[in-house]
Design a protein around this nucleic acid. Structure first.
Length: 295
DNA sequence: GTCCAGGTCATCG
DNA sequence: CGATGACATGGA
């Protein structure tokens, strides 16, 4: 099978990234096999599967025979975004190293990239699924949604599911999903997200055309079911937007409190003050703080 | 049994 | 406006 290759940047540690990908949750959108990761992208309605493994300073990506150069480039772009390969982390580490409390993050998780969700639709739906419930349950719901409404393809002996399209989710069967332990709120919110893509022309590219962060955020929070947490989560995971801090996140406040960075878990002013010191690297800091919760 | 999870909205006063 | 309850479930 054809092999593509991406040179890994400075401060990149594939095993740190694998640890994040394999935190022990029931993930359904990619699979791990040894030290390789398998998943799919979608091009013109067709699923394109691929695998990634690290070899001697390169990420080696395997695709099926007969994939056009154009589609190969889409796979490469996806991997670059997913692993945030084009970012220079040196300024982030020098910022962390200025603080005695944060220094361990730079040491312990060196080379960890902000693992993204390149699809805006997937990120918004995932933020809805993850609202308020524990992550174990959220992953369970995601699997049920994806297996009921998403397509799959077999690649190297693995059945790989792809996240459903807005069209596939706009007419969700609420009664069926009730039997699958979805709240009516979540079903409605996911429908709302799908509708804003289909009817209001929301997309990653329309979002990118808006220069101002607050306006981007508002475009998302205008959707019923997407609050500040969800909007910023999506902006962080899809656009790697530095200033997208998922305010209200329980894990984030927990972690800030654990590190002695805020005096009280409800002290939002202290959280804002803390992130002022991290300007330009807020989202990365959040990602590393979350990482610290996993041990 | 109680409390809280990678929140949000509707409905109060 | 700010406060409060519902939502669904499972693990500590």
């Amino acid at each position: 099978m054809p092999l593509l290759s991406l040179q890994t940047p400075q401060s990149f540690d594939f095993d740190q990234c694998l640890f994040f990908l394999d935190r022990g949750y029931d993930e359904c959108l990619y699979q791990l096999s040894g030290r390789s990761v398998l998943r799919t992208i979608e091009c013109d309605g067709v699923l394109v599967p691929f695998s990634i493994i690290e070899k001697k300073g390169n990420l080696v990506i395997e695709v099926d025979e007969g994939i056009t150069d154009e589609v190969q480039n889409l796979v490469l772009d996806y991997v670059k975004e997913w692993f945030d390969l084009e970012r220079d982390l040196a300024p982030f580490y020098s910022l962390l190293n200025k603080s005695d409390q944060l220094k361990p993050l730079a040491e312990n998780y060196h080379g960890l990239r902000l693992i993204g969700i390149p699809s805006l639709f997937e990120a918004l739906c995932w933020s809805v699924l993850g609202q308020q419930i524990n992550l174990t349950f959220a992953f369970k719901l995601k699997r049920r949604l994806v297996e009921a409404y998403g397509e799959s393809i077999v690649f190297k002996g693995h059945k790989l599911y792809h996240f459903p399209s807005p069209k596939a989710l706009v007419n969700l069967d609420e009664e069926y999903l009730k039997t699958q332990q979805f709240s009516r709120g979540k079903v409605k919110y996911i429908k709302n997200v799908a509708e804003s893509f289909l009817k209001d022309g929301l997309s990653k590219s329309t979002l990118l055309k808006i220069p101002e962060f607050g306006e981007r955020q508002m475009l998302l929070t205008n959707i019923k079911g997407i609050g500040v947490w969800s909007a910023n989560y999506a902006l962080m995971k899809t656009l790697h937007q530095p200033e997208a801090i998922p305010f209200g996140d329980t894990g984030l406040t927990q972690s800030l409190f654990n590190f002695g960075l805020i005096p009280d878990r409800k002290d939002e002013a202290a959280i804002i003050k803390f992130f002022k010191e991290m300007r330009g690297w807020e989202a990365y800091t959040v990602f590393y703080l979350w990482r610290s919760l996993a041990g």
